[in-house]
Amino acid sequence: MGAIALPQLTRAPSRRRAMPGFGLTLGFTLSYLSLIVLIPLAALAINAAGLGVGGIWKVLTTSQVINALKLSFGGALVAAAVNAVFGSLIAWTFVRYEFPGKRALQAMIDLPFALPTAVAGIALTALYSVPTVPSPGQGWLGVPLEALGIKVAYTRLGVIVAMTFISLPFVVRTLEPVLEQVDRQYEEAAATLGATRWQAVSRIVFPALQPALLTGTALAFARAVGEYGSIIFIAGNLPNLTQIAPLLIAIDLDQHEVGAATAIAVAMLALSFAILFGINLLQTWTRRSERRTA
């Protein structure tokens, strides 16, 4: 006994955290965020500051800008809402059922992610436009819809269609893993207690999915607000009608109106931040009630 010397504590146990590396990781996080996110955004804000509040206000209160901002944010909201509903259904189908071709369909869901947005825009435009002279591959959906009195290409509806197309994967992909975690035993328990299928889904499954659904919808919304490439093709360029805010920025830049472009950009930044912040608050709130309950 005792022949082997034990290593001595040379240092008093310091104020070390249970999880080491806090300083390093926080430092890295902050520098990275600064470089990638904060510095470009700060540059934008400084640029806009040159215009003065009055200058910014003047740009933003023109009807063309107001309408474009309304379309960008309103359209994104509609697209996110549509995808919240149908994306949930798709995620449900993928997780809960086995069917031939499921793999291929699942890969297709990611296409709007991977596709260059201009390609999506051209495809959508070809599909929904109404050609003056019949031409192959043009107007497959546009012509029959026109017969029903619905115009998609070069209208606000077209903007929403494009936004819905490109933001669909966000809801599906966010919901799938969470839905996989929802044990069927809960639905079985609800059924033995007399709950109909609908009651089991709405009262048991849906509350479990709610935080993920909120995240997915927020991501879809953010993507739709920021979308440019696919929309400009199908929307055309009709002032006050189908112009989205990012298109106005591009136009202003084209005409060397850097100040006006910056003002619109700052407005988009502020609105996006406010909305995402709001969604975040909502999420903290649901998660808190979740924690109380989970």
């Binding site: 044990d183 809960y186 079985e188 328990a189 609800a190 509350p207 989970a294």
Partner: peptide
């Protein structure tokens, strides 16, 4: 159920 399947929320 074996693991009770109580509704967490």
């Amino acid at each position: 159920f074996q693991h009770y399947a109580l509704f967490k929320h």
